[in-house]
Design a protein around this nucleic acid. Structure first.
Length: 475
DNA sequence: TTTTGAGTTGTTCGA
DNA sequence: GTCGAACAACTCAAA
């Protein structure tokens, strides 16, 4: 009897892993497989934080599989070609893998399924990435939800799948030695200074337990303050599947039961964020065109601007708006950005600079270590007012956001060091410093730190006119 | 079919 | 500085 292939993609863990759990219960040898050139890895820049995270997660996966008695097989090459080769080489009994919902993955996976099925090999796919799949959360009419709250209500009514638990020990069938990569071969030179979040299952659990015991109770307020370590930072771990979403949800429910009243609201808020992740997965699944186009079609007429100078200022964190600049520099330096800052920089690019949200979305794809296409697309379309959010136009005031969410300017000063000596009174608007003060503290506007690249009041008024014009055209 | 009510994360203004 | 209302006024799920 041939082995069972368990194909790992965005689910780099051994604990509570649907496909691995089920495969190790059959009693056949199991070949855990990772193909380096998947839909996941192809888009990751090799010098980016996400790639670094991935290699760490993979190295640990290899170790954890070994502890279960198995051996990770890593192959490089086109996915379909790799599977064709393995079909001959291993003559597997079956292939198991967890489902992925991105449009490109769906297309790829159906080809893989067909390949194995045609050869009489059993194919089993599993729900693993989400608590509830896009096909499970539908309106009464069987249509997809496009407003969050009704989606969340329907989601909460469904009974949640319990964690499966540990995989059994297994053996890996003797592998042909050719074409198998060593552990280090996927590793490339990376130049990310001390990643804030190390990849892998162990780190995922460490961070999660710390968040559960010390942070989740104050999540509702602290999550909005970029200078405070108040968010879970689980996004990269979820992106690469270093932790099980079923387990996280179960932990939240247990914590909720034993929590004080005040903390319960915070835990519910956190669960809502997990539901947002599933909501945007569902939206993209049902409307794959959103990767390229506006949900609200009338925005196809939006006369987005483009300026190399302004776009570069945004990318580099040199807009003259300290909070925006802090966010962008955090992204560039660490591969991660606080959620509050993500909203502010996205609003700034789309509303103040009036640049197409797709430009911002691709820059995030390039830089974020937690890049999840569904969430990224949903977030950017939300910011640009082109998406499924039913609220009317929303323009963030970057100055106000700065004062409200970074009142002590700790975040700004951490990532925009040239503002370190600017007094509290001026730190959210350094260009207002009198020239003498600029000179005194060695932060001259236009030299050490830029003047605002646009005037918020003027450009937001302009944006409002464009918005009204675009929308009224519709009827 | 029509009606009703609610909507992640905002901003501004005036008391 | 804080608070509530006005802003704008649209979509869409569900009754």
């Amino acid at each position: 009897m041939g082995p069972i292939i368990v194909w790992f993609r965005r689910d780099l863990r051994v604990d509570d892993h649907a496909a691995l759990y089920h495969a190790t219960r059959v009693g056949l040898p199991v070949v855990p497989l990772f193909v380096s050139d998947t839909e996941l890895t192809r888009r990751l820049p090799p010098d980016g934080a996400a790639f670094n995270f991935l290699t760490e997660a993979l190295a640990e996966l290899r170790k954890n599989l070994k502890a279960l008695g198995g051996e990770l097989m890593t192959r490089r090459g086109k996915v379909l070609e790799v599977h064709k080769t393995l079909l001959k080489e291993l003559q597997p009994q079956a292939i198991y893998f967890n489902r992925d919902y991105e449009p490109s993955s769906i297309e790829q996976d159906s080809k893989i399924e067909e390949l194995y099925r045609k050869s009489g090999v059993e194919v089993q796919t599993f729900k693993d990435t989400l608590v509830h799949e896009p096909s499970e959360v539908l309106t009464g009419d069987g249509k997809p939800f496009v407003v969050f709250t009704p989606f969340a209500n329907a989601w909460k009514k469904l009974s949640h799948p319990a964690p499966f638990g540990e995989a059994r020990r297994f053996t890996t069938a003797k592998l042909a030695s050719d074409g198998i990569l060593g552990a280090g071969e996927l590793k490339r030179e990376v130049s990310i200074p001390s990643p804030v979040l190390p990849g892998g299952e162990k780190q995922a659990n460490r961070r999660w337990r710390m968040f559960l015991s010390r942070k989740i109770g104050s999540y509702a307020t602290n999550r909005d303050l970029p200078a405070v370590d108040g968010t879970s930072m689980m996004s990269p771990y979820l992106r690469f599947g270093c932790i099980s979403i079923r387990k996280m949800l179960e932990d939240c429910r247990k914590a909720h039961q034993s929590a004080a009243h005040a903390e319960r609201a915070s835990i519910e808020k956190f669960v809502d964020e997990l539901i947002w992740r599933e909501f945007y997965h569902s939206v993209l699944y049902h409307f794959p065109r959103l990767l390229e186009s506006n949900y609200r079609r009338e925005f196809d007429r939006m006369p987005w601007k483009f300026s190399v100078v302004l776009f570069n200022a945004w990318k580099k964190g040199l807009t003259g708006y300290p909070f925006v600049d802090a966010g962008m520099r955090q992204l560039n330096q660490t591969g991660w950005m606080h959620n509050r800052a993500r909203m502010v920089v996205a609003s700034f690019l789309t509303k103040d600079l009036q640049h197409d949200w797709r430009l911002g979305a691709s820059y995030f794809e390039e830089k974020l270590m937690d890049i999840e296409t569904a969430s990224n697309n949903g977030g950017w379309q939300w910011s640009a007012s082109t998406g499924v959010d039913p609220k009317p136009m929303r323009i963030f005031n970057p100055r106000l956001q700065s004062e409200r969410y970074d009142p002590e300017s700790k975040y700004i000063k951490q990532f925009v060091p040239e503002l370190a000596k600017v007094p509290a009174k001026f730190v959210h608007g350094p260009h207002e410093m009198p020239p003498a003060l600029q000179k005194e503290i060695g932060c001259i506007i236009g030299r050490q730190y830029p003047a605002p690249v646009v005037d918020h009041a003027a450009v937001s008024a302009e944006y409002k006119r464009l918005y009204v014009a675009v929308r009224s055209h519709n009827s």
